[in-house]
C-alpha cells in the first residue's frame, strides 16, 4: 500500500484546492454568469407590441369538426401556416395543460392529446430542430401525469419529446412590466425558447371563472400557489408580460363547464369539437369565453390582459376566420 506523510498530504491538498479555485475562476471568466443581470427597468417599459398578421392571414381562426388533428391543421393554415411561427432549426416548446396525474382526457381537465400531437407534427414538418412538450402538474409526478393524460403517447408518436421540468431551470427572473409582482421563479427555457406555443384546454375554474391561455401559463412558475393569494388577475397578467407565446391554440374539443379546473364528473363535460388559434392570447381567450356564454369582461384575467395591452378582447375589430372541417 502506498503511504504518504503529512507533508505530502498537505502539499497535495493545496495543489488540489488551487486547481479547483483556478477552474472556478476560469468558469466565471467565461462571463456568462446571470448574476450580473441588468438593473430592473422602470415600470414604464412598454410591452413589445404583437406583430401584425401577414397579408391575407386571419387574426384568429376557429375550426369546427370531428377530427382534432384536422382542426389544428386547418386553423393554423388559416393563420398563414405553421411557417409563420416556426422557422427551420427553431427550438419549440409546447405548453399544454396537464394539471394533475389522476384525470384522463375524457374529464376535460387536461389538453386533448391529439391537439398536442398535431401541433408537434406541424412544427417538425416546418423544420423545428427540437419540439419539447412540458407542464408542471400540481398533483402527482410529471412523468405519471404525462402518461395518464395521453399526451406523452401522442407527442412521442409525432416525434416530439416530453420534458420533465428540472428544478435547476426555475430561475429568479425579473418582470420588467410587473405591477403586482416584480419577479418570478420561471422555467428558463420557456422564456428563452425560439418559439413558445400555448395549448390550453378551455375549462371552468372556481377562482378565475375560466382557465384559458393566459391562466395556462401559470404552469411555468415553481410557486403557482402564491399567485392565488391576491390580485390573481394582475399577477397572471404580470407573468404573461414575461412569458409571451408566439402562438396560442385553445383546445375546445371537450370543455369543462363546471367544477374546474380538475372536474371529475362527466356531466360537466361538453363536446364542442372546436379549436381556436391566434397569435394574440387575449383574442384567443376572449373567443374561447364565448363558448361558455361569457365575454372577456366576465373573466378577470383576460380583462386584465387586454387592459395591460397584451392583446385585444374586442372580437368585432379583428379578422376571424371560421372553418368547418
Amino acid at each position: 500500500m502506498n503511504t504518504i506523510d503529512r507533508r505530502q498530504f498537505l502539499e497535495r491538498m493545496v495543489a488540489l484546492g488551487g486547481t479547483a479555485l483556478a477552474t472556478a475562476a476560469f468558469i466565471s471568466l467565461l462571463g456568462c454568469s446571470k448574476e450580473s443581470a441588468p438593473e430592473l427597468p422602470s415600470d414604464t417599459t412598454p410591452l413589445t407590441p404583437l406583430p401584425s398578421p401577414p397579408e391575407g392571414a386571419a387574426y384568429l381562426a376557429v375550426a369546427r369538426g370531428d377530427t382534432p388533428t384536422t382542426l389544428v391543421e386547418r386553423a393554423v393554415e388559416a393563420l398563414g401556416g405553421i411557417g409563420r411561427f416556426v422557422k427551420s432549426g427553431n427550438d419549440v416548446i409546447i405548453k399544454p395543460n396537464i394539471c394533475v396525474d389522476y384525470r384522463t382526457q375524457e374529464y376535460a381537465a387536461t389538453t386533448n392529446p391529439e391537439v398536442v400531437g398535431a401541433l408537434v407534427a406541424l412544427c417538425i414538418g416546418a423544420g423545428a430542430s427540437r419540439v419539447r412538450v412540458m407542464d408542471h402538474p400540481f398533483s402527482g409526478s410529471a412523468e405519471k401525469a404525462y402518461v395518464t393524460s395521453g399526451i406523452a403517447e401522442a407527442v412521442e408518436a409525432a416525434g416530439g419529446e416530453m420534458e420533465v421540468m428540472a428544478t435547476m431551470k426555475f430561475q429568479d427572473t425579473p418582470i420588467p412590466n410587473g405591477q403586482s409582482i416584480k419577479s418570478c421563479r420561471v422555467y428558463e427555457d420557456i422564456v428563452e425558447t425560439d418559439v413558445l406555443i400555448d395549448v390550453p384546454i378551455a375549462k371552468h375554474h372556481d377562482r378565475t371563472v375560466l382557465s384559458l391561455g393566459m391562466k395556462n401559463l401559470l404552469g411555468v412558475v415553481s410557486n403557482p400557489g402564491d399567485y392565488h393569494k391576491a390580485d390573481m388577475a394582475e399577477r397572471v397578467t404580470d407573468l404573461n408580460t414575461l412569458a409571451r407565446p408566439h402562438l396560442v391554440v385553445v383546445d375546445a374539443i371537450r370543455i369543462l363547464t363546471n367544477h374546474g379546473p380538475t372536474g371529475g364528473n362527466l356531466n360537466d363535460v361538453k363536446q364542442m369539437n372546436t379549436v381556436i388559434a391566434s397569435h394574440d392570447i387575449v383574442a384567443a381567450d376572449s373567443y374561447a369565453a364565448t363558448l361558455f356564454g361569457k365575454t372577456a369582461l366576465d373573466v378577470p384575467i383576460v380583462h386584465a390582459g387586454a387592459t395591460r395591452g397584451l392583446g385585444t378582447m374586442d372580437l368585432s375589430s379583428i379578422k376571424i376566420e371560421e372553418i368547418a372541417a
Binding site: 400540481f138 372556481d206 377562482r207 392565488h228 393569494k229 390573481m232 367544477h259 380538475t262 364528473n265
Partner: peptide
Amino acid sequence: CIPWSQGINCIVCQEMCPLTEK
C-alpha cells in the same frame, strides 16, 4: 385562511381536492 381572515379569494384547497365530489 386567506378568504376567512383577509376576505380575499384563494380557493387553492378546493381546486386541489382530487375527489370526484370535492
